[in-house]
């Protein structure tokens, strides 16, 4: 059982207009096996939270702590965070020209597992992950995210989630840009990863539709850089009906 704990997290970014505070004291605790949905309007800082936890250099931490089983995550380099068990499924995964999916996945798995996976078993793992996400085998020979459709990028992110077996996954708007079928396939992948590894999930979304496939244990409303309300799955239903108006104006 692991715990990812975020306490009083404050984050700024440098903009052309100067330093801007995006996160204004975020508190959140996620345990293995739990699914937390973070919902909120555009610009509320949801993605900043995701990237700050992953260690993107664009964001400056000005206060608070992030710990994984008591160990300071904010002191770690980006790769060390991944090795500690954190995974970020990105909303806009980055193209890496000339690097094949197959080479990329094996390099990442080797780094995370501390040794190169045995080729035979690895080929099987990749094959089954791709089948689960209904991806064509030729996908492995393509360059990372290069020319991928929106749906392919998201499938590729979730394929990594299944293969790299983190303790906690932050899914940053994984549902955006997916049609109904793709949403179901991708969500099933997340559920498989949860069941296989007792994964804790922080699921960032605007919409409730992904929550039909990935049942949240907790729902947090995020507005103006912090959590403004928490509840169970019923909170998502309320947001679906009423929108974010009351939180934004408040």
């Amino acid at each position: 059982m692991s715990t990812l704990e975020i306490r009083g997290l404050k984050v700024t970014v440098d903009t052309e207009q100067g330093v801007k505070e995006i996160l204004k004291g975020v508190d959140l605790t996620i345990k293995s096996g739990e699914t937390h949905a973070i919902m909120g309007p555009n610009g509320s800082g949801k993605s900043t939270l995701a990237y700050s936890i992953a260690g993107h250099p664009k964001y400056t931490i000005t206060g608070g702590t992030v710990t994984l089983d008591g160990v300071d995550v904010l002191e770690m380099t980006v790769d060390e965070r991944a090795k500690a068990g954190l995974f970020l499924a990105m909303q806009y995964p980055v193209e890496v020209p000339g690097v094949s999916v197959s080479n990329f996945l094996r390099t990442a798995a080797t780094a995370l597992r501390g040794e190169a996976p045995k080729l035979r078993e690895w080929v099987g793992e990749v094959k089954s992950a791709m089948e689960g996400l209904k991806m064509d085998p030729s996908f492995a020979q393509r360059n990372v995210n290069e020319g991928f459709s929106g749906g392919e990028k998201k499938r590729h992110e979730i394929m990594q989630l299944e293969l790299l077996r983190p303790k906690f996954a932050i899914l940053d708007e994984t549902d955006s840009g997916l049609d109904v079928d793709a949403l179901r396939v991708v969500s099933e992948g997340v559920v498989r990863a949860k069941e296989a590894n007792n994964l804790g999930v922080l699921l960032i979304t605007h919409y409730t539709r992904i929550l039909r496939y990935i049942q949240p244990d907790f729902v947090h409303v995020f507005a103006a850089g912090k959590v403004v309300e928490q509840g169970g799955p019923e909170l998502a239903e309320k947001l679906e009906a009423n929108g974010y108006a009351e939180y934004v104006s408040a």
Binding site: A82, G98, A111
Partner: peptide
């Protein structure tokens, strides 16, 4: 950042990107 967020250390990530650049 993308490569490192998958556990690949910086020097390996750089090597991968440069290899990728020349690979074409």
């Amino acid at each position: 950042f993308y490569l490192m967020s998958r556990g690949i250390q910086e020097s390996d990530a750089r090597r991968l990107v440069v290899r990728g650049f020349f690979n074409e």
